[in-house]
Design a protein around this nucleic acid. Structure first.
Length: 414
RNA sequence: GUGGGCGUAGCUCAAUGGCAGAGCGCUGGACUGUGGCUCCAGUUGUUGCGGGUUCGAGCCCCGUCGCCCACCCCA
């Protein structure tokens, strides 16, 4: 019987996998430049970690987690995001004793039980960073600049950087109650989802795309008018740094987040080149989370990029990676076949990728096979070549041919 | 959880209720020491699955499973 992959889960195979490598390599190179070090986190955590970290009322915790009991009856959960684990790791390993800021990155699969659609899987991959120990907005700005550089180097354009501040535990409650008061006598003219949001997360009403709701948010109080002086100053300073550098960004006073732990700066990088799931990276500051988990009071800021969405964007642009030498060794006759094995090994020792013809077939077929394998050069070995040590080669890109000693051929293609 | 669309060859898709096809791919030949282009030949099917209507179903009806897109939510 045939067994199929689960809904919302995907295999990644060649040639697409090279895009994944490219993204991961580019991100890691920049993480190094900005001083981020890797942490490897478990995929399964105690359910309570996400319950307390992400927030009980959030959609992720309420209906999207892969939660199950282990053999001892403990409630475990496949991680739906990385920040909660990173904070747990930070506290558990007392990383706050290292010089601040402590900068870490992680990557790997996340799990959310959602209905799959374009840009959304149940197992999806994120690369993310968390920086601890600095409250100054220069760190927020640096992180946004880093993400911007990574995305630009990947060749992505048509990107928008949106930022907002959602205040802190001092000023947000006040804003929230004003918002509730404002929408309180307008509930009948809001959509059904917004009526639900009114109870669960009133800030989300501001983010609704239903026309009548957008209409109703006109004149609604905006968070930026309710920020306390510290939050206000932090936000102002962040914008100042970004403008001076400069980084193009858009202030979106209605931008919100679905996770409870965010404070002050939040940001989202979106594209018009995807479907409805258009955020390719997002994050923000979470100055209260470390303390909430029993660690020292620690300011922190983090973000994550969605791998599947980046891969989707890269697929749609032309691939201009420079070709590396890939040699196909063609043989004619039993003696050449024996010799080809050692010659191939020698080429590999020189760092060159080699395919060879296993068994024997006509030269025409071998050249055709080389072409299909996307080889750059074919090394042709017959009896004459074996005895003389002068090998026939052909450049498949332009048809050019020549005869060289093996070492000269290696220098030629490398 | 809700709504819409779609399931036919390895892939992309055709086929008034009447012989299940094309293009691409793959294998080989034209060309046995020279690929790509061209030409020729070959190749692949439980039409997702189960039932019903009918002389006859890929097509109509019912059910079911799967995929996609959107809402919701989010990276």
């Amino acid at each position: 019987m045939k067994v199929n992959i689960l809904k919302g889960f995907a295999d990644v195979c060649p040639p697409e996998i090279t895009l994944w490598h490219h993204i991961e390599e580019t991100a890691k190179r920049h993480f190094f430049l900005y001083g981020y070090e890797e942490i490897r986190l478990p995929i399964v955590e105690s359910t309570e970690l996400f319950y307390r970290g992400i927030g009980e009322g959030t959609d992720i915790v309420e209906k999207e987690m892969y939660t199950f009991a282990d053999k001892a009856g403990r409630s475990l959960t496949l991680r739906p995001e990385g920040t909660a684990s990173a904070v747990r790791c930070y506290i558990e390993n007392q990383l706050y004793n290292r010089p601040s800021p402590q900068k870490y990155y992680y990557h790997g699969p996340m799990f959310r039980y959602e209905r799959p659609q374009r840009g959304r899987q149940r197992q999806f991959y994120q690369i993310g960073c968390e920086a601890f120990g600095v409250a100054h907005p220069a760190l927020d700005a640096e992180m946004i600049a880093m993400i911007n550089r990574i995305l630009l180097e990947l060749g992505l354009d048509n990107l928008q950087i949106e930022i907002n501040s959602i205040g802190c535990s001092k000023c947000r409650p006040n804003y929230k109650s004003n918002l509730i008061a404002f929408f309180g006598d307008r509930l009948s003219s809001l959509c059904s989802d917004c009526n639900r949001r009114y109870v669960t997360n009133p800030l989300r009403i501001m983010d609704c795309k239903v026309p009548k709701c957008i209409e109703n948010t006109k004149g609604a109080p905006l968070i930026r008018d309710y920020l306390c002086s510290d939050c206000s100053e932090h936000y102002r300073a962040l914008k100042g740094i970004l403008e001076h550098y400069p980084i193009n960004f858009i202030e979106n006073p209605k931008l919100v987040r679905g996770l409870d732990y965010y404070t002050r700066t939040i940001f989202e990088i979106t594209t018009e080149n995807l479907g409805a799931q258009k955020a390719v990276a997002a994050g923000g500051r979470y100055d209260g989370l470390v303390e909430q988990f029993g660690g020292p009071q620690t300011a922190a800021v983090g973000f994550a990029m969605g791998m599947e969405r980046l891969v989707e964007l890269l697929k749609n642009q032309s691939n201009n990676t420079p070709p590396k030498a890939r040699i196909f060794v063609a043989t004619l006759g039993a003696e050449a076949e024996r010799a080809s094995f050692g010659i191939s090994e020698e080429l590999r020792s020189a760092g060159i990728q080699v395919s060879l013809n296993y068994g024997h077939s006509s030269l025409k077929n071998q050249l055709r096979k080389a072409d299909r394998l996307n080889a750059t050069h074919v090394l042709i070995i017959g009896e004459e070549e074996v005895s003389s040590g002068m090998y026939n080669w052909k450049d498949l890109s332009n048809g050019q041919q020549g005869q060289s000693r093996l070492q000269d051929f290696i220098n030629l293609v490398r």
